[in-house]
Design a protein around this nucleic acid. Structure first.
Length: 724
RNA sequence: GGGCGGCUAGCUCAGCUGGUCAGAGCGCCUGGUUUACACCCAGGAGGUCGGGGGUUCGAACCCCUCGCCGCCCACCA
C-alpha cells in the first residue's frame, strides 16, 4: 500500500510473459530460453496499390493477424520509396502502413520486418513510438480469438501456424522457408512456450528502487563474497525492467486492491479501509470486489528480512537483528531474492538487509553435470547421509566450497571425510582409555613438558587459522586446517609422542599429558562443531562431565603467548630424526624387526640434550635400540641429516649396498641442484641489487646448508666405496 | 551479441596481496600383528602449473593473445 501511494506500484497494460498452461503472468526471470529447431517463413505482403510486394520473415506466422505495420530502416535505400505506403495484409485484407524505424535491421532477412505490437516485446516498443493499434489475437489459452478470421477462431496457436503457412502457399505468397535454430521462451515451471501477451497487471517501478540498491553495493555497505558476483548484480540492476508482480494463481498473498462499481481502484490495508475510502469517494457505502490476483512469491519474499522481525512495528527484534550480518545463498538466487530484498530493505528501512552476501557454489555430479531429476543423476542427500553420515557430507561440502562456481560431488571424497570422522572418534577413544579428562585448574600455558608446550602452541595456531578462515568465509581453509591438525599433528605426532609418557612411571608428567590431551581434544571439538555437529556433540557428551551442550559452548579464544619457539624447535628435532630415519629404513628395506642403535654424529649441546631427553620416544617410534653419540666416522652406518643434526644407522648388515649407493647419489644430486640454483641467483648482479636483502640472505644460507650437506653425503659415499 | 568462471600430479581440488609453492585427499606402488583407529600405520613414485608472447633480478601467481570446457544475461524477422 505504501509503495502504491508512493506510485512505485501501479497498474498498467503492457506485454507480459504469459504462461498459457498455468494461465498466469510470469516475470522475466521465470522465463527460460531454450534452443529449438524452427523455421523462418518468408511471406510476401502485396502493396496496396498493386505496385509490388514486400517480403517479411517470421517464426510465428499465426501472429500476422495482429500485424499493424511493416517497418523498414529509415536509411535503407531499397525501401525508401515505400515508406508511408501501405501493404494489404493477406488473408485478412486489412491495410497496414509501412513505417520507418531504426529497429528494422537492413542486414537481417529482407530488411523489412512485420510489426505485431501485441505479441512481441520489440514490436510493442515500435508500436508505442508510432502509436500503432495493438491487436490481440490470442485468448488466455493461446488459441486464436475473435480478432482472427472466422476460420481460425478457437484454433491452437500451433495449428493456426500450419494453417497460415498453408494458406500463404496456396495464395502463392510464400517466398521461402528457412530452417533455423533459435531461442524460444519457455515457462521455467510449466515448460510451455510463453507468449508475450497484452494484459492489465500490477507493476513495481523497479528502476527507482534499484538506485539505492546499486549504491549500497557500490559503497560497500553490502559486500558480495566472492566479490566478482557484484558485477552480475550490477549488470542486472542497471538494466532492470518494470517488475510484474501480479499472478493469476490461487496461492500467495492476495493483492490488497479493491474495485468499485465503476472500476475505480482502492488500495488499502484491509477491506474495511478500502470500503471507507470508497464510501468517502462515492458518497455512500458501495460493495467492492477484491482483485483476484496474488503477489509474485518473490515480492513477498523481498520483505522477509524485516517482516519476520516484526516490521512495520518498531520491535526490539528489528532493532537488534536488522541489518543482518551474512546472507548465504546460491548465485541463481541473486536476482530473484537478493536483489529484491536489497531494494525493499533499503526503501523501507533505509539500510541494506545484510552486510555480506556469501554466494556458495552449485553442486554438480562427479561428471560436472547439473543434477536434474530428468537426467537421473541426482544424488539423494538422505542416501549419502545413510551411507557416510551427515557430518561427512557437511565436511565434504565445506571443504569443497572454494571460490569456484561449482562443486563436483563424488562419493570418494565423502568417504575420505567419513574416515576423518572415524579418526576423530578413535582419537577421542584413545584419550578416554588413557583417562584424559579435563582438569578444572589446568593451564595449558603453564605446561612443563616441551611436547605439551608444543601442542598447546599448535592448538592456538589452528584455532587462530580456523577463526580467521571462518571470518573470511574461506570455509574450505577452515576445514583443511582442522583436518590437518587433527590427523597429521594431533594423531600422528602428539598422541604417538604421548604414548611413552602415558605408559611411564612419572605420575606428574602423566597427569599433565592427560590434561593436555583432553584440552586439545576439547578445543578441536569446539572448532569442528560448526562443520561436524553430530560427531562432535556426541564426543563432547562422552568425554567429560559437561554442564552445557557443545552447541552452546563458547568459541575458543586461546592465548597467543602459549606459542613456544623453543618447544617447537625441540619437537621439530625429534620429529625430524624419526621421520627422516623412517624414510631411510623404508628406502633401504631395513627389516622392520631390526633394532639398530641410532648414532648421533653431529649435534650441538642443545640438540644433544634434547635427543637424550627423548631417547625413549625416538627408540619406540623409529624402532631403534639406544642412542649413541659418535663423533668418529662410522663405517657400515648409513648417514642421514635432520633438523640441523647428523645421524647414522648401523644397518650395513641388513641392506643392499648398491641401494644405499643409489640413495646417496640421489641425495647428493638433489643437493647439487639446490646449490646450482642458489649459486646462479647469487651470481646475478641484478638479483643482488634489486631483490630484498632478506631474500638474498635466505639464498646464501640455503647455499651454505646445501654445500655442507653435500660434503657430508659425499664423505659417506666414499666410505661406502671403501667398504665394498 | 554482452558478461562471468575454469583449465595445476591418473581423478577431485588447494595454492591470498609475484622470491623453497610445485601441494592435499583419493587412486597407484612398497613395507607393516607398533597396547585408538586396516574407515589404520610407515614410506614412495607421479606435474615443463592449457598454448604462445610480454613485464620483472625472479611468475602457477601480473599484462596481452590464442585455444578448449562450463555458466549467466540478451536474442522467437
Amino acid at each position: 500500500m505504501t509503495l502504491h501511494r508512493q506510485k512505485l506500484i501501479y497498474r498498467d497494460k503492457r506485454l507480459v510473459n504469459w504462461d498459457p498452461q498455468f494461465q498466469t503472468a510470469i516475470s522475466d526471470l521465470e522465463v527460460e530460453q531454450r534452443e529449438v529447431e524452427g523455421h523462418y517463413w518468408h511471406f510476401a505482403y502485396p502493396l496496396e496499390d498493386g505496385s509490388g510486394e514486400i517480403v517479411v520473415a517470421t517464426s510465428r506466422p499465426e501472429t500476422m493477424f495482429a500485424d499493424t505495420a511493416v517497418a523498414v530502416h529509415p536509411n535503407d535505400g531499397r525501401y525508401a520509396h515505400l515508406i508511408g505506403k501501405c501493404v494489404r495484409l493477406p488473408i485478412v485484407g486489412r491495410p497496414i502502413p509501412i513505417i520507418a524505424d531504426d529497429y528494422a535491421d537492413p542486414e537481417k532477412g529482407s530488411g523489412a520486418v512485420k510489426i505485431t505490437p501485441a505479441h512481441d516485446f520489440n514490436d510493442f516498443k515500435v508500436g508505442q513510438r508510432h502509436r500503432l493499434p495493438m491487436i490481440n489475437v490470442l485468448d488466455p489459452f493461446a488459441r486464436l480469438n475473435d480478432n482472427a478470421p472466422e476460420a481460425y477462431r478457437g484454433l491452437d496457436r500451433f495449428e493456426a501456424r500450419k494453417k497460415v503457412v498453408a494458406e500463404f502457399e496456396a495464395l502463392g505468397l510464400l517466398r521461402g522457408v528457412e530452417n533455423v535454430r533459435h531461442a524460444v521462451p519457455h515457462g521455467d515451471r510449466s515448460g510451455a512456450v510463453v507468449e508475450p501477451y497484452l494484459t492489465d497487471q500490477w507493476y513495481v517501478d523497479a528502476k527507482t528502487l534499484a538506485g539505492p540498491a546499486i549504491a549500497a553495493v557500490e559503497e560497500g555497505r553490502t559486500v558480495f563474497e566472492p566479490r566478482h558476483w557484484e558485477k552480475t548484480y550490477f549488470e542486472w540492476m542497471r538494466n532492470i525492467e518494470p517488475w510484474c508482480i501480479s499472478r493469476q494463481l490461487w496461492w500467495g498473498h492476495r493483492i490488497p486492491a479493491w474495485y468499485g462499481p465503476d472500476g475505480r481502484i482502492f488500495v488499502a490495508e484491509s477491506e474495511g479501509e478500502a470500503r471507507a475510502a470508497a464510501a468517502e469517494h462515492y458518497g455512500r457505502d458501495e460493495a467492492l470486489r477484491q482483485d483476484e490476483d496474488v503477489l509474485d512469491t518473490w515480492f513477498s519474499s523481498a520483505l522477509w528480512p524485516f517482516s519476520t522481525l516484526g516490521w512495520p512495528e518498531e520491535t526490539s527484534d528489528l532493532a537488534r537483528f536488522y541489518p543482518t550480518h551474512t546472507l548465504v545463498t546460491g548465485f541463481d538466487i541473486i536476482f530473484f531474492w537478493v536483489a529484491r530484498m536489497m531494494m525493499m530493505g533499503l526503501h523501507f528501512t533505509g539500510r541494506p538487509p545484510f552486510e555480506r552476501v556469501f554466494i556458495n557454489a552449485l553442486i554438480r555430479d562427479a561428471e560436472g553435470a547439473k543434477m536434474s531429476k530428468s537426467k537421473g543423476n541426482v544424488m539423494d542427500p538422505l542416501e549419502i547421509i545413510d551411507t557416510y553420515g551427515a557430518d561427512a557430507l557437511r565436511f565434504t561440502l565445506t571443504a569443497m566450497s572454494g571460490q569456484a562456481r561449482d562443486i563436483r560431488l563424488s562419493t570418494q571424497r565423502i568417504e575420505g571425510y567419513r574416515n576423518f570422522a572415524t579418526k576423530l572418534w578413535n582419537a577421542a577413544r584413545f584419550c578416554e582409555i588413557n583417562g584424559c579428562a579435563a582438569s578444572p585448574g589446568f593451564d595449558p600455558g603453564a605446561a612443563a613438558a616441551p611436547v605439551n608446550r608444543w601442542i598447546a602452541g599448535e592448538t592456538v595456531k589452528t584455532a587462530q587459522a580456523v577463526t580467521a578462515a571462518l571470518d573470511a568465509c574461506a570455509f574450505d581453509d577452515a576445514a583443511s586446517a582442522l583436518y590437518r591438525f587433527v590427523w597429521n599433528i594431533f594423531c600422528d605426532w602428539y598422541l604417538e609422542l604421548a604414548k611413552p609418557v602415558l605408559q611411564g612411571m612419572d605420575e606428574a608428567a602423566k597427569a599433565e599429558t592427560r590434561s593436555m590431551a583432553a584440552f586439545v581434544l576439547e578445543t578441536v571439538l569446539k572448532l569442528l562443531h560448526p562443520v561436524m555437529p553430530f560427531v562432535t556433540e556426541a564426543l563432547w557428551g562422552r568425554t567429560g562431565e559437561r554442564k552445557e551442550m557443545l552447541i552452546t559452548a563458547a568459541w575458543p579464544r586461546l592465548d597467543e603467548g602459549w606459542i613456544d619457539r623453543a618447544a617447537e624447535a625441540e619437537v621439530g628435532l625429534v620429529i625430524g630424526a624419526i621421520g627422516t630415519g623412517r624414510a631411510l629404513r623404508s628406502e633401504l628395506n631395513v627389516p622392520p624387526a631390526a633394532r639398530p642403535a641410532l648414532l648421533v654424529t653431529e649435534a650441538d649441546a642443545g640438540q644433544r640434550r634434547i635427543l637424550e631427553a627423548n631417547a625413549g620416544v625416538i627408540g619406540q617410534m623409529l624402532r631403534v635400540e639406544g642412542l649413541k653419540f659418535e663423533t668418529a666416522a662410522c663405517p657400515g652406518a648409513v648417514p642421514f641429516l635432520a633438523a640441523g643434526a647428523a645421524f647414522a644407522l648401523p644397518v650395513a648388515d641388513f641392506i643392499d649396498l648398491a641401494a644405499e649407493r643409489a640413495r646417496l647419489e640421489k641425495e647428493i644430486a638433489a643437493r647439487a641442484a639446490n646449490i646450482d640454483r642458489a649459486r646462479r641467483k647469487l651470481a646475478n648482479a641484478d638479483f643482488i641489487a634489486r631483490a630484498p636483502e632478506e631474500v638474498v640472505e635466505e639464498n646464501r644460507e640455503r647455499l651454505a646448508e646445501s654445500e655442507a650437506a653435500k660434503d657430508k653425503l659425499e664423505g659417506a659415499l666414499a666410505r661406502l666405496a671403501a667398504l665394498q
